[in-house]
């Protein structure tokens, strides 16, 4: 599709530019500014060069938080993408069931993130929560406040609960766009259920799966509120993700320089991974040969 060249179109984009400049560029410049300066008190800044970046990149605290984030995102993608596909395949295609499924599935997505945290904080408690109580009743020693593994289990379960529907809804949108003739042809060709999935449904879901992987990666990598409410980053530092650490550093300890340097590194890591996913998936889609 050839669009005509028209530089006046810039005027149409101008409002967005101004708004984004105000809500993104200026704050980002502040961050960059802080990241290369040091301060000993009120409004006295001096040049620090790359010192903060070196400190951050060599700090074990940062490495650990980054590792936690990467492991968390990997687990999240490994569970939510296949589960989302399975749920999408299981959804009814017509009738009242579609509306019911869509509405119920979208429900967790519309709950404020700290309420999501609260729900699971309560749900997982051994004394008053259904999950914690049940696990204890069947003899599993479960306590997400004390045990790091239990804390991770709770947070991952919570995220699966919270976001799998997004993947499923995206895949469902891809599935319903497949013309009926494809399924008919597959039946005539004697294709097995697996072959239908592998050669018809999966290829047609490619685009939406790309969106799903990107969104789920970005959002799981930026996760803050839900684990903060459930565990507060604990026990110990076991669920302290980059965002939690960053807010602790910037707002709690007011270490502006390191926090700013960390912000930039953090942002760049998200960009880098998103770019890798995007490139790999689009290459894969083109045939990868």
């Amino acid at each position: 599709m050839d669009r005509p060249t028209n530089q006046k179109a810039w005027f149409l984009v101008l409002p967005v530019l101004l708004l984004v400049a105000f809500s993104a560029v200026i704050p980002l410049m502040t961050v960059v500014n802080y990241s290369v300066q040091d301060t000993f008190g009120n409004n006295e800044f001096f040049w620090a060069g790359t010192a903060w970046f070196e400190e951050i990149l060599h700090s074990q605290r940062f490495h650990e938080a980054l590792a936690r984030n990467l492991i968390f995102s990997a687990i999240i993608l490994a569970i939510q993408i296949p589960l989302g596909i399975v749920v999408a395949l299981s959804m009814p295609r017509k009738g009242i069931g579609v509306s019911i499924c869509l509405v119920l599935m979208a429900l967790p997505l519309l709950i404020p993130w700290n309420v999501v945290g609260t729900i699971w904080q309560v749900f997982g408690r051994v004394d008053i929560g259904l999950l914690g109580h049940t696990l204890e009743a069947i003899g599993i020693d479960y306590n997400y406040v004390r045990d790091p593994l239990d804390a991770w289990f709770t947070i991952i379960l919570m995220d699966v609960w919270h976001w799998t529907s997004l993947v499923a809804l995206l895949c469902y949108a891809g599935l319903v766009s497949i013309p009926e003739a494809y399924y008919q042809a597959a039946r005539i060709d004697g294709a097995s259920r697996w072959a239908v999935f592998r050669y018809i449904q999966l290829p047609k879901m490619n685009r939406v799966l790309l969106i799903a992987v990107l969104l789920r990666f970005m959002d799981s990598f930026m996760i803050y509120t839900e684990p903060f409410v459930v565990t507060g980053g604990g026990p110990g530092n076991s669920t302290t993700f980059l965002s939690i650490d960053l807010v602790k550093m910037a707002v709690g300890q007011f270490d502006l320089g390191p926090a700013a340097a960390m912000s930039i590194v953090y942002f760049l890591v998200v960009l880098l991974f998103s770019w890798i996913f995007y490139t790999v998936m689009t290459n894969f889609e083109r045939g990868g040969q």
Binding site: P27, L28, T30, M218, L271
Partner: peptide, 20 residues
């Protein structure tokens, strides 16, 4: 560039927003 803003962790912006 617009889309990269969607990738910016809100935690990064918390402090600068407050100051701005």
């Amino acid at each position: 560039w617009l889309l990269t803003n969607r990738m910016a962790p809100p935690a990064v912006f918390a402090l600068p927003f407050f100051q701005l």
